[in-house]
Every structure is written in structure tokens, then in C-alpha cells.
Amino acid sequence: MLQPRRKLVGAAVNSTLTLGPGSRCSSRCSSSSSSSSSSSSSSSSSSSSRLSLVRLRHPQNRNRVQQAPWLYLVATGAALTGFALYPLFVLFRMSVSDVGPTNLLSGWNVIGTQNFTDILATADFWMSLNRTFGLTAALLISSLGIAFFCASMLLTASRSTNIVLGVMVFCWAMPPIVTSSVWKFLLDNDGLFNSALKAVGLPLVGWLSSPNLAIWSVAIVLAWAGLPFSVMVIRGAMLSISPEITEAAAIDGAGFWRTQFSIVFPQLRPTLWILAVLTVLYGFKSFDFIYVLTKGGPGTTSSTLPVLAYFSAFNGFNWSIGAAIAVLTIIVVAIVAIPYMRSVRKEVAE
């Protein structure tokens, strides 16, 4: 966790590095610039990080003079209270009320936990929950495992690396409605994938129509859409690891992958941790891709929690059921995210 900070400190203290590492020169060259800076400015990198460590251990140094910066939170607080927190509260209230088409915006009767007991009694909910977990697990493999692998392979700065990253990031930036429509065609029964299979004489695959496969096809598309972001984040974190460490490992005779796993991977833990939380959020929130690709079908085999909530609310006009499913989703994800929240608390309290 200290590695990225240390380098930044070096960059900040040394005013010759106005652009910061990595922004002017690409990737590996940042390592040389930071090492040159440490030699030129009396080893600023290590000394200043020691400096900040000292301060971390003595928080009272700052207590004396600093006021809590409440004023800096006012605008955000107001905006979020009005347009995010209050709607969240309304969502909770909706989930314990009886909201149908006739009283969509007002005149709700509180009916207690009935919506929840109703939903929890349906097999649809539990199956959707399972699928959502399965989908999220697949996405975790992709956004941590596959992305780690890809990022390792894209570490070397070169024209080709830039092109690959550029294309990936551009795909990631496209509106989901476009990319999901394209994938719907590619995975269709006579889409590109099946045409390719046919051309080489293999049997066709019901990517989106086989009850056992549909959810995994959806997972592949979601992973495709999310991978560029994960690769960028992991690659960025890898580049900010001091090269001395990996070079030392190389001198000791460790191969590339050995170094990646035993040296780089542990250093990336904080980044991967965050990425994992973001991926869980992604898995539990993804809706537009599934909607375009399968509408939750065939049957209900690719219906995840957000899909279930959406269709209950907007196609079946049962808004309070939809709201209750959303609330349950929030609770589930909040439980999953408890370790993350703990780590945030620890980091803040440091």
C-alpha cells in the first residue's frame, strides 16, 4: 500500500517532475525518472516517505492547528441528501408499502414486511440470487484473474501496447446499449460465432438460448465490457511498484511469472481489493446488458436480481415488490462489502 504513495511523494516534492510519473512518459520510463529524481534531490523518494510515516505515527502534530473541513462537504452533502439519500429513503419506504399504478408517487399505505415475506417465499427470488452470485463469481475471475494476466502481458510500453489498451478502453467507453446489441447479434443462433463454428464443421451452440448456457454467455459479455477497466487499474498499480523490487527478484533468478505472483501480486492487494468490491457492485447492478441480450430468458434462466426487480416494477406494475427486491439486493451487497468497509475504517484510522 505504501509503494504507490512513496513514489507520488517523490514526484510531489521534486518540482522538476511537474507532470508526475507516467503521464508524460509511458509506463516503464517512469521508473527511471523517479529513480533519477531520488538521486538528484537528496533521495527525496525514500526520505519524504519516511517523513510522512513519521507524521502518521504522530497524529497530534496536526490536531493542534487543523479544523475539521466541514465546509468542503456542504455542497456535496446537500446534493446527495436531496437527490440520492432521500430517494434511497423513499425506496425503503416503497418496499414496505403497497405501491401500484394508481398510487405511484403518493398515497402509499404502509403494509409492513409483507412484500419481503412474499418475495422470500418465491423460488424465483432465490434462483435469481444464486444466479447473481454465480455471475458475480465469474466476473471476479475475469476482473481479477484474467485482468491480472492481461495487465502482466501489457506491461511493456510499446506502440502495440498502446493500441491494444486504446481499443479496449474505447470499447469500454461505448454506451452499453450499443455494445450489448452488437453482442446479441454475434451470439445469435446464426451470428458470427456460430457461423465460425459452422465453417469449421463444429456443432452450433445456443449461446443465448440454451437454458444452461445463457447466463454464462451473459457473464462473458459483461466480463468483456468490464475487463478494460480492470486491466487499466491493475496495470497502473503494477507500474507504480518500485522496479528495484522486481529487479532484485530477477537477480535472484525468479522468472517473470514467479515474480508476478510472489512479489507483484502481494503489492497489488489493496488495488485488487477495491477492484473486487467494484466487481461485486457490477455483478449485482448489471441490468442493461442482460435486458438487451436475453430479457432474463430463456424462461427465467438468466434473470438476476436487478432483472427481477425491473420486470416486477416496470412490466408487472408492482413497484413495491421491485423496491423490496432492490432493498434485499442492497442488504446482500452490503454484507458482502463489510470486509471492505472494515478496511476503509482501518485505513482512515491509521
Binding site: 438460448s209 445463457a214 434462466t301 420486470f311 406494475f317
Partner: peptide, 19 residues
């Protein structure tokens, strides 16, 4: 709407072989 969705889900499940 719910009545219609029930029929639709069953049709989709049948065609796909889920049911």
C-alpha cells in the same frame, strides 16, 4: 400484465428446453 408474463415465461422455458 402479470397474467401475460406468466404465459410468456412458460413459453420461453418450453422452447429453450428449461421446462
Amino acid at each position: 400484465a402479470d397474467m401475460q408474463i406468466s404465459i410468456g415465461k412458460a413459453v420461453s422455458a418450453t422452447i429453450s428446453g428449461q421446462q
